[in-house]
Amino acid sequence: MAKTLYDYWFVQFDFPNANGKPYKSNGGKMVWNEVVKREIPISWEVRKISQIAKTGSGGTPKSTEKDYYENGDIPWVNSGELNNSFIISTNNFITEVGMKNSSAKLFPRNTILMAMYGATAGKTSIISFEATTNQAICAVMPLEKEMFHYTKFVLDDMYRYLINLSTGSARDNLSQDKIRELNIIVPNNFVLNQHSKMTIKYFDKIRNNLQQNQQLSSLRDWLLPMLMNGQVKVE
């Protein structure tokens, strides 16, 4: 439902106009933008990712140093985990010492992560907890909270473009600099605010469902062996 809303408002440009009618379908004024090579609503702009968000990348503590990993309690996300749109937990952790002695950085909850190379290059995920990442991930943190959900969908829509940035396999060619230079259409504040208010409930629902599924899976894994060996019975 969230993706359908995004497509309707920001791909077809049929967001509600001042009278609550679909903008473009009801004659909303469009202007040609030379940067993105298409028409966009008259009051909208085109900006680079670097103008609307902070970015960063992570690092991998030296694997031969046990102190960097043993009893670690700082979540550490690798690019293989970005196949999921939301990351609600990770099995990988590093220590404070490991983070200080590597390029790993702690990114805040609700950061957008994009894989820069490997099998998941171009994929994006949202972390629902503070976490560090490996160096194959670019963290994108919109400067305005109203841009958060919109930016996630924009980057998802760019997936095919991102893996074809250069000749051959572009999966090995993404970088933080290239991501920062991406041009995106930026709606006016009113439309952004309305979209954010409507979309957040869908994102919260997805996140809550994933967390409940994880809890139920843990309960199943705990209960099933006891059922099999007769420790508990179903009356």
Rank of each mutant, 00 (worst) to 15 (best):
M1L: 13
Y6R: 02
Y6S: 09
D7V: 06
D7G: 02
V11K: 13
V11H: 05
V11S: 12
Q12H: 14
D14C: 10
A18R: 15
N19F: 06
Y23P: 02
K24A: 10
S25Y: 10
G27S: 13
M30C: 05
K37M: 11
R38K: 11
I40D: 02
P41M: 06
E45A: 04
K48N: 14
I49L: 11
S50G: 05
S57C: 12
G58E: 12
G59L: 07
E65H: 12
Y69D: 03
E70G: 02
D73M: 10
P75D: 01
P75E: 09
W76E: 00
N78H: 08
N78K: 05
G80T: 09
E81M: 13
N83V: 09
N83Y: 11
S85D: 12
I87D: 05
I88N: 06
S89D: 14
S89W: 01
S89R: 10
T90M: 06
N91P: 05
N92F: 13
N92P: 03
N92Y: 13
I94L: 00
I94Q: 03
T95H: 11
V97M: 14
G98Y: 11
M99Y: 04
K100H: 13
L106T: 11
L106A: 09
L113H: 01
A115P: 01
A119F: 02
A119V: 02
I127K: 02
I127Q: 13
S128N: 10
F129K: 11
A131I: 00
T133M: 10
T133K: 10
A136N: 00
M141D: 03
Y150G: 00
K152C: 10
F153V: 06
D157R: 11
D157C: 10
Y159A: 01
Y159F: 09
R160F: 14
I163C: 05
I163K: 12
L165M: 13
L165C: 08
S166N: 14
T167G: 15
S169C: 07
D172K: 14
D172P: 02
S175I: 04
N183W: 04
I185P: 01
P187W: 00
N188H: 02
N189T: 07
N189I: 11
V191Q: 00
L192G: 00
L192W: 07
N193G: 08
N193Y: 01
H195Q: 05
M198A: 15
I200E: 11
K201R: 08
F203Q: 04
I206L: 11
I206A: 00
I206S: 04
N208P: 03
Q212T: 14
N213T: 10
N213S: 07
S218E: 15
S218C: 07
L219D: 07
W222C: 15
W222H: 15
L223W: 05
P225Q: 09
M228V: 13
M228W: 10
G230W: 07
E235S: 10
